[in-house]
Write a protein that binds this DNA or RNA. Structure first.
Lengths: 207, 207
DNA sequence: ACGCGGTTGGACTAACCAGTCCATCTGGTG
DNA sequence: CACCAGATGGACTGGTTAGTCCAACCGCGT
């Protein structure tokens, strides 16, 4: 648990405050970065007071962990929504299009919410790193499920490793996000993911 | 220029101090992160004084830019060394092996020196971002040169875009670094790069 | 040898920031 | 209604940090 008082009672009012703080912190840390986001920034953005924040979190580190959980759940919920029923190559391409277009709106700025958290936090907080590792693993699982469905339908050759393909796909996505961030242009992200998808398609039975 | 006094004369003594400061800052920022590295940390690690640092750099931001240049040149020099004469698929695989093994020594920790800088600095300092973008572009050029040599030798099909393949390869590499950082295990990095290489090999004329 | 520009040491400051504390308030429960 | 644990406001503190300043020093060019 990331709470300061995991076993404590929590009224609806308190829970709402907590949620407001985490949401504001997540947004700020995504845009400004974790280290550059101060507690006072979070208070101002969430319209709460210091005692409220420290009532719910032991430290800034605990808040960061709550943000990791929050962003992770948001990301996985969205990915479950968009990948859950995909079972065709066309569906996978539509998934790619949605991610590329959404990143294009920001011209690549800020990158992947989960990825930027990971690279800023992994070397500094082992607990947060484990949580992120677990989140990436679940995300990879969602993609592997899609690929397994393709395989079961005979679209993908039976001897390919769907787990490895899923890992490669997330790798290409994350690397693409980073390049897009540096260039302020979605193009390299699209190219990177397209290469992974082209590889997967080259392993389909139709070719 | 990232210097505070670009047009100034610089004695050998001063140049050495400057280099010592940049090298120490680069190492600290790689391990601790840019934001978590304080000026005093750099002074202690480089054995220099505040007036020395501010004699050479206007601000911490200017120091970060110098670090970006330094790390970028180091990375490109190393990559030029290992990619400059590669003109076979086997050579490309050896390049992969070297990167994976070097990252395995740290169990994936800290990631790619250039990549972690990029994700921490891109959204915060536009000048540094442009420099990083340029560095990635040069790196991509080195890989594209290798692929073009393969193409000229008839190993790679003549109709594939070496530029896009090179972008995808760097994307896979960077994404792999990030996943390895989160998992503290090289495996996902190896998998990610291997997928990109497998795709390139699938576009070779021998298949 | 001499002078001047580049170089160095380190004390100092002003701003900032995470975290503490306590007095006050709110709303659910008996 | 009375109680009280949980919730809130915000002033305060101690430590840290980027950046300033000035006096002293070194060494290159003449």
């Amino acid at each position: 648990m990331t709470d300061s008082h995991s076993g404590r009672r929590l009224t609806a009012r308190g829970a709402k405050t907590r949620a407001r703080i985490v949401a504001a912190a997540a947004e700020l840390m995504y845009v400004k970065g974790v280290a550059a986001t101060t507690i006072d920034d979070v208070l101002a953005a969430s319209g709460s007071s210091k005692s409220q924040l420290y009532h719910h979190f032991d430290s800034k580190e605990a808040l960061v962990r709550a943000v990791v959980d929050h962003v992770g759940q948001n990301t996985l919920d969205r990915e479950r929504e968009s990948l859950g029923h995909v079972s065709t190559l066309r569906g996978l391409r539509r998934w790619r299009d949605a991610l590329v277009q959404s990143n294009a709106l920001r011209h690549g700025a800020y990158g992947c919410a989960l990825g930027t958290l990971a690279s800023e936090v992994s070397d500094h907080d082992d607990l947060a790193r484990r949580a992120l590792s677990q989140l990436f693993s679940e995300w990879q699982g969602l993609l592997a499920d899609v690929l397994r469905r393709l395989q079961d339908d005979g679209v993908l050759k039976p001897d390919v490793s769907v787990d490895q393909l899923a890992t490669g796909l997330i790798g290409a996505l994350q690397g693409g996000y980073m390049l897009a961030q540096a260039e302020r242009d979605v193009a390299p992200m699209a190219t990177s993911v397209d290469m992974a998808l082209a590889h997967i398609e080259s392993l389909s039975t139709s070719r």
